[in-house]
Design a binder for these strands. Structure first.
Length: 138
DNA sequence: GCCAACGTTGGC
DNA sequence: GCCAACGTTGGC
């Protein structure tokens, strides 16, 4: 597992907002499978930030800045959040259309499970995405 | 604005 | 505990 992919609706919270804030709490996730993934995030993990809605593209890389912990604003130990810091924007955004068009990414959760908001990104997938983004390495 | 895919709820 | 009905999300 190379990292994570986090979906966000840019009109609600975009990568620019993250850059502006320098540090945010990634909250609002209630889907069970997504929460299961959050339970596994570790400080220092890298995460791709994907914009849904109008954009539908992976736009940047962020770094997980804490382990998962229950949302302090809520009273439910199951609803986990974690801290996130921006790392850098991708040289070029990788659109969902491109991801779908790539045969090697057929099994990527982003394609298979449209509604999943937090998903692991395997090493192979990560590399392919980086290449598509015009990045040399992580 | 529609529909597919998935999660949740509630009746049995 | 099963499953149908319903709600929500996100892509088109």
């Amino acid at each position: 597992m190379a990292g994570w992919l986090l979906k966000t609706e840019p009109t609600v919270y975009s990568y620019s907002d993250l850059e502006h804030d320098r540090h945010t709490v990634w909250d609002g996730v209630s889907n069970n499978l997504a929460l299961k993934h959050i339970r596994q995030v570790r400080k220092g993990d890298l995460a791709l930030v994907y914009h849904t809605g109008e954009e539908k593209a992976v736009v940047g890389i962020a770094e997980v800045a804490s382990a998962a912990y229950p949302d302090p604003k809520l009273n439910d130990p199951k609803l986990l959040v974690f801290d996130l810091r921006p790392k850098r924007r991708l040289d070029r955004a990788v659109s969902l259309a491109e991801v779908k068009a790539n045969d090697q990414l057929k099994d990527f959760e982003l394609v298979r499970m449209a509604r999943l908001s937090v998903m692991p990104v395997g090493d192979a997938v990560w590399k392919i995405l980086m290449k598509m983004a015009g990045e040399k390495e992580r």
